[in-house]
Design a protein around this nucleic acid. Structure first.
Lengths: 209, 209
DNA sequence: ATGGTTATGTAACAAATGTTACAGAAATAT
DNA sequence: ATATTTCTGTAACATTTGTTACATAACCAT
């Protein structure tokens, strides 16, 4: 795995690429693997190279709430702020698909602000994360579970680039923080409307272009 | 108004203070004044000096959802990311009390990263804003309206440093995005539990130490 | 094939909130 | 003082989601 070549798709500054080659570690995760749990200390920043990462809020009780996905070229703004302030992770991160990342040690992330490209990369990621979180708030504050469920299925479908999701009602219920019966009920209605096709342990999402 | 003297309570680097004196503008708002509306272009970053600012998500339909308060020494992380990416404001900001701020032009916020104190100030504000937003998500995802209502009243009470809030049920309902009747119902129950005392256009919050 | 486990379907009822409608009380304008 | 507006109380009913309980179907291990 040539790190420099990989990072090349995100950055172009040769000096920065040299630094990345020097400090970054390549790491790959299998579909479904947990990258980080709520409460873990954060010692590196992940740059997504390939695949995607599902980010979920998890509170002290273990209650979960789906937030958003990270895609190639992106990093997790919250892990940046967390490690800078030496706080534990507030979120859980799961490889949505087979996923490859570069791990950047915390120390470098500060230092690299001298590279304009790194600075604007981080800045853009902050912007992006904020608007993702605001979107989450919109969804849960302004709409019922049916819309949240559609959004959740579409996002996971998009992340996996397949309409057929291998998933149970219980898993969805957990990540949307409702009861399994509610999800089953809503899915039945959605099936009647031809928005999904239901199988055992899988759901075909029919709402994407 | 001596800007340098005012900023002195937030920063200590003399060089940075000189820059602030040169570029910052002092501005004051009366209680209830709107500092910025959703959709406005953002051309400056506000540093809160005195008072407090209530930050509210407002979507394209005008639907509102209370987010958090900004206090002296703080700035709005979202206005930073917004102006850097030339996006319109996603939030509305209202002076909770008589409030004084310093307006920092967008251009300087970038440049001042050369001052470590500014960099860590901004970084801390990012961290803070993220955890505030996560708290908002926790509240609306994991709890019913009664807890949200108590939280809302306590936050406003804290921001105004008074237990007696001058506020109508309708205003609360708007900012928590529920119907007035729901708020009235919940407040009656809260009054029975001696958590609040209700008057016309005011509420006394009894849950604070 | 059998039995156990997991996933889903269904129903009945409870609780929270939305929705509509109206009444009365308090404030404000004239 | 009177009329008008604003704020709050209340009720009845609808909708959404929570809660409990159980049945059935599909899968899995032996």
């Amino acid at each position: 795995m040539n790190i420099k070549l990989t990072a090349n798709s995100i950055f172009s500054d040769p000096a920065l690429l040299v630094e990345i080659e020097k400090y970054a570690r390549y790491k790959s995760f299998k579909k479904g693997e947990v990258l980080i749990n709520a409460g873990d200390a954060i010692v590196f920043i992940p740059l997504v190279i390939k695949g995607s990462i599902r980010v979920i809020r998890e509170d002290y009780d273990g209650a979960e709430s789906y937030l958003y996905h990270l895609y190639p070229g992106q990093t997790c703004a919250m892990s940046l702020t967390c490690c800078q302030s030496r706080k534990k992770s507030m979120i859980k991160a799961i490889a949505e698909d087979d996923t490859e990342i570069l791990q950047i040690p915390v120390a470098q992330t500060e230092d690299w602000f001298k590279y304009p490209e790194w600075k604007s990369y981080i800045s853009n990621n902050y912007t992006n994360s904020f608007s993702e979180l605001i979107q989450v708030i919109d969804l849960i504050a302004f709409s019922n579970m049916d819309k949240q469920l559609i959004h959740y299925l579409e996002e996971r479908s998009k992340a996996l680039r397949t309409r057929l999701l291998d998933i149970t009602h219980q898993e969805i219920a957990d990540e949307l923080h409702v009861h399994r019966e509610t999800i089953s009920r809503l899915l039945r209605v959605m099936e009647d409307k031809n928005l999904v096709r239901l199988g055992r342990t899988n759901i075909e999402v029919l709402t994407l272009k």
